[in-house]
Amino acid sequence: MTLHPAIIALLAGALAVNALVLYAAWHALAILRHWDPNSGSERQLQLERRTYLVSTLLGNAFLFEILSLALLVFVADRLHLQINGAMCAVGTFNANAWGYPALLLKVFNVLGAGLWLTLNFADSRAYDYPLVRVKNRLLLLLALPVSLETLALWYFFRNLKGDVITSCCGSLFSAGGNQVAADLAGLPPLPTALLFYLLLLLTIAFGVLFLRGHGKGQIFTIFATLTFSVGIAALISVFGPIFYELPHHHCPFCILQSEYLHVGYLLYTALFTGVLAGLGCGVLSPFRNRPSLHNFIPRLQRYLTIICLLSYALFALAVTLRFLISDFQLFS
Rank of each mutant, 00 (worst) to 15 (best):
L115A: 11
P101E: 01
F74Y: 11
N96V: 07
D128Y: 08
M87A: 10
V107F: 07
A122N: 14
Y129E: 12
G85D: 03
V90S: 04
A126P: 15
L117A: 05
A97Q: 11
T92K: 13
N96L: 05
R133C: 13
W98Q: 05
Y100W: 15
A102E: 08
V90N: 03
L81N: 04
L103K: 04
G112C: 11
V132E: 15
L105Q: 10
R133N: 14
A122E: 08
R78Y: 12
V134G: 04
A97K: 10
H80L: 00
V110H: 08
V110T: 15
L79W: 00
C88S: 11
P101D: 02
N94K: 12
T92G: 06
V110W: 11
G91C: 05
S124P: 09
Y127Q: 11
M87D: 14
Y129M: 11
A122L: 09
Y129D: 13
A126K: 15
V107S: 08
L105Y: 11
V75M: 10
V75L: 06
A86P: 07
L105G: 12
G91S: 03
A86H: 01
V75C: 10
V90F: 02
P101Y: 06
G91L: 00
L79Y: 00
P101F: 08
N120F: 08
Q82K: 10
A76V: 03
H80P: 00
I83Q: 00
A95F: 02
L115T: 10
L119Y: 12
L131Y: 09
L115H: 04
A97Y: 11
F121D: 00
D123W: 04
S124I: 05
L119S: 04
W116I: 02
F121R: 09
L117G: 07
V90I: 12
V110M: 15
K106C: 12
Y129L: 12
W116G: 02
T92Q: 06
L103D: 10
N94W: 11
G91V: 02
F121H: 14
A95Q: 08
V75F: 07
M87V: 13
M87T: 15
T92P: 07
L104H: 09
N120L: 13
D128F: 08
F108C: 13
S124H: 13
L104T: 05
